[in-house]
Write a protein that binds this DNA or RNA. Structure first.
Lengths: 346, 346
DNA sequence: GGAGCCCGGTGACACGTGTCAACGGTCACG
DNA sequence: CGTGACCGTTGACACGTGTCACCGGGCTCC
């Protein structure tokens, strides 16, 4: 804490820029500063058309931009939204961040990214609390790194959580639920008498993967299949072969493997082929993503198509609703938008 | 402008949280508010050891966190850094953002992401200027979306640019220069009498790809090879085959294709194989990335290994230097860190 | 004709912080 | 003993904004 403060003050001596303020606008327009503030904040009907126009003119001429610091100080709330990003490689987080940032930008807010880092959940939560306390953001969007208890704590702190809370069993959100269920049901439908779930082996945590594995296990239980094995697959050919080999050694019958993403599915597929296993005879593989790479290789991957825009539509809708943008029709038909794209691996 | 302001005021009626201020700390510690401020800002030696301790104690007890709005207002500068992200899919932007955000976090700053969107360079620059004007950030980090003129304009506006300016020919930064040169030289070394450059066909712009294609052309000119063709490769098997077929039809001799990333390289490789071309006999393929997927498929991809941490190390170092963190030794040996990983496609 | 109301507009305050100038006290020095 | 320096501490100001309460004037309505 003390060290951090020290660093902050040992700043480069930035020259003080003048900066045009609302007082300048008022002076040029020949009105009081309060009038400028009122007009700029939508109280247009209370003033004469001519005054409004003069103020608008002055704003444009001076290229006036209100100071976020001044606004935040008096409102007790900034025009920032904190984006809590989990430490995972599972989905294409870049696209998600980009879509959300664009939405926020449309309604006049900016996104501050906060990445989940190592150091245990306590450390991360305290960093986040510090951020919320100092920035007083207009809201928080969680992409999966926070527990319901964490979210409650943040909201208690005065920071509304804009992302929808997961409502399904085990705290799995609709998107991950639909993906995992589609994977499992497809494999069962294709006749595999036993399933497995393949995680990405990575230094990062994988909350989505855990959720999905749970859902796959549930589907197996419903269908009377044995508890699915869980394997961790590194994205290196030799190591992936080892992992797949370990799984197949103890199995006498075909196994359908649901993978946490398409890269893992590619790794599993080519590992199985290198091990002289028949695909999809001995080993079935289904990925998730469906974007590109799995459909380029031979054999073509079976995968659950997964449109990022769909998966974040509920978040985006919540943002617009809370922060006041145009209402877009919600896309809630997850079972339809997450559909199976059959390739040559099942 | 007016609509934006209107939206901003139609906010949910957030209850005013009290919030512990430095005055509370001062009261509890039995000192003046100025004393608290001085101590929290590193003027420790000017006060008695006992006073410093009492203030520290009070800060901890009340969990006091200074208000960013108050700081920014009086300092004329916030503890935010704007991250300008180009509209590209070429590199793994997520990792870059994450690394930079972590560095900023270490020195007490937060990252505000600003994505390059459609609407022409003028629109993007004006959005960015607005952001800089209202947020008064401590700095700006450009990941490649801004021209030198844009950067100058922003700096003139009072926002220091933390990312290093490209210094090479054609405005190509060191990382992209080393990558493209390694690709071209490898293909020439492997005996291809003619080269080509394969872009990713995407709705997004691809500034890095253009830079690299230019470098490849330069290397060809140096070596006395003809001007390399440039093709745009969609990430769908059938379309990729069309693109590769068009390229090969007019060529009577082997062609070495440098690809803008590993996914494109996979697409080109499997497209060539589907067209009954010999790889690497008729067609050589080298990607860039070397992370995972190219090394999982059969045939294994030749690629230029590319460590994200290395590529952003110069940016990170610039951040630490400008914002005052611990100095890390720079990693400037690009020729070493961007090396060719030979697979079965060259 | 006076009370009340709507209209267009404004003065003053509060938000929380960093820092300049100044304070009283003690101590060394001439 | 007078004077200046230094130490530890503090009061006061400024930063730019949103908004409450208020004001004068013209109008309507009994």
């Amino acid at each position: 804490m003390s060290m951090e403060s020290e660093r902050l003050t040992v700043l480069p001596p930035t020259p003080r820029r003048p900066g045009v303020t609302s007082a300048d606008v008022a002076r040029l327009a020949g009105v009081s500063r309060s009038t400028v503030s009122h007009i700029l904040n939508g109280q247009v009907t209370r003033f004469s058309e001519e005054t409004v126009e003069r103020v608008r003119e002055a704003v444009a001429q001076l290229a006036y931009v209100p100071s976020a610091a001044g606004r935040s100080l008096v409102l007790g709330r900034s025009d920032l939204v904190v984006l809590a990003v989990p430490n995972t490689t599972l989905t294409n987080v870049q696209d998600i961040i980009e879509a959300i940032a664009a939405d926020l930008d449309d309604v006049g807010y900016s996104a501050v990214v906060h990445f989940d880092r190592g150091g245990g959940p306590a450390g991360n939560l305290s960093r986040l609390r510090h951020l919320v306390e100092t920035l007083r953001p207009a809201g928080l969007v969680d992409l999966g790194s926070l527990s319901p208890a964490d979210l409650d704590a943040l909201e208690e702190q005065g920071c509304p959580v804009l992302s929808p809370r997961p409502r399904n069993v085990h705290g799995v959100d609709e998107g991950n639920f639909a993906i995992a269920r589609a994977q499992a049901e497809h494999l069962i439908e294709r006749g595999f008498p036993e399933l497995a779930y393949a995680y990405l082996d990575d230094r990062r945590d994988d909350p989505f993967g855990r959720m999905r594995a749970t859902v796959v296990a549930d589907v197996c239980a419903e269908a009377g299949l044995p508890e699915p094995a869980r394997i961790s697959v590194p994205l290196r050919a030799a190591d992936a072969q080892t992992a797949v080999c370990d799984l197949l050694r103890t199995r006498g019958r075909p196994v359908g493997i649901a993978c946490s993403n398409d890269e893992v599915a590619v790794a599993v597929t080519f590992a199985a082929l290198a091990l002289r296993a028949a695909v999809p005879g001995d080993v079935g593989v289904v990925g998730v993503g469906g974007g590109s790479v799995g459909q380029l290789v031979e054999p073509r991957l079976s995968t659950v198509t997964f449109d990022v825009r769909t998966s974040v539509s509920s978040i985006r809708q919540a943002i617009r609703q809370a922060l006041g943008g145009s209402q877009e029709p919600a896309v809630n038909d997850f079972d339809d938008t997450f559909s199976v794209l059959q390739g040559a691996t099942t």
